[in-house]
């Protein structure tokens, strides 16, 4: 009998694994690995001193105005969100063919003018549409240039520029289709 008693001295630790497993699964499920996403924008630095207004060829500028009721005025006409992407692509990729549209992708400028009362969401959607147009052009160009299929999602990955390859590819696309999106001074006063 004495022999048996000595065998049972240790604490039964086999359920410890189960408990730890439960904790592990809890953490696996509850924590989300940070995958924050956003629409990237380069801001133009504030000019120093007075800068004379630059003469822009009107045909190169694609103008989008959003009023405080979130209505779009595109190139002087009432417009819809759905037309932006298509028109941007035509505008940028025009190469002087249509006298109303841009001379070359390098000269093309997209101007967004908002009101202070415009919804942030509307602005972001417009920006998104513009980027979509540009990124499709860039992805097509890269596919052609590199001889491999590059989708828009691939291009978004490339534009993170986290590796040397992506940096080079992004530069290639950027040289062909530089993104000239300018945020014009907002309408609706009372800034700050």
């Amino acid at each position: 009998m004495g022999k048996k008693k000595r065998d049972d001295v240790g604490v039964n630790a086999s359920s410890m694994a189960d408990i730890a497993f439960l904790l592990l699964i809890f953490f696996l499920v509850t924590t989300r690995i940070a995958s924050e996403k956003g629409v990237y924008r380069d801001l133009a630095p504030k000019p120093e001193g007075e800068v004379p207004p630059v003469e822009l060829n009107k045909r190169n500028v694609y103008k989008i105005i959003i009023n405080s009721n979130n209505e779009l005025l595109i190139e002087g006409d009432e417009g819809k969100m759905s037309q932006i992407k298509k028109e941007i692509k035509a505008h940028v990729n025009n190469y002087g063919a249509d006298p109303e549209l841009s001379v070359s992708p390098k000269d093309a400028i997209i101007s967004i003018k908002t009101d202070r009362g415009t919804d942030y969401t509307t602005y972001l959607t417009v920006l998104d549409e513009i980027l979509q147009g540009y990124n499709e052009l860039r992805a097509e160009y890269l596919s052609q240039k590199l001889g491999e299929k590059i989708t828009v999602d691939d291009f978004l990955e490339i534009s993170r520029q986290d590796t040397q390859v992506n940096k080079d590819r992004y530069k290639l696309a950027k040289e062909k289709y530089p993104l000239n999106v300018s945020d014009a001074e907002p309408t609706g006063g009372g800034a700050k």
Binding site: G38, P45, D119
Partner: peptide
């Protein structure tokens, strides 16, 4: 989502004064 552009524009203008010119609109 419910924001007006006003406050976003103000922040953007403030950031333009600094060297923090690369921004994300989180979405």
């Amino acid at each position: 989502v419910g924001l007006d552009m006003g406050v976003v524009i103000d922040i953007r203008e403030e950031l333009r004064e600094t060297e923090a010119l690369k921004i994300y609109y989180a979405a």
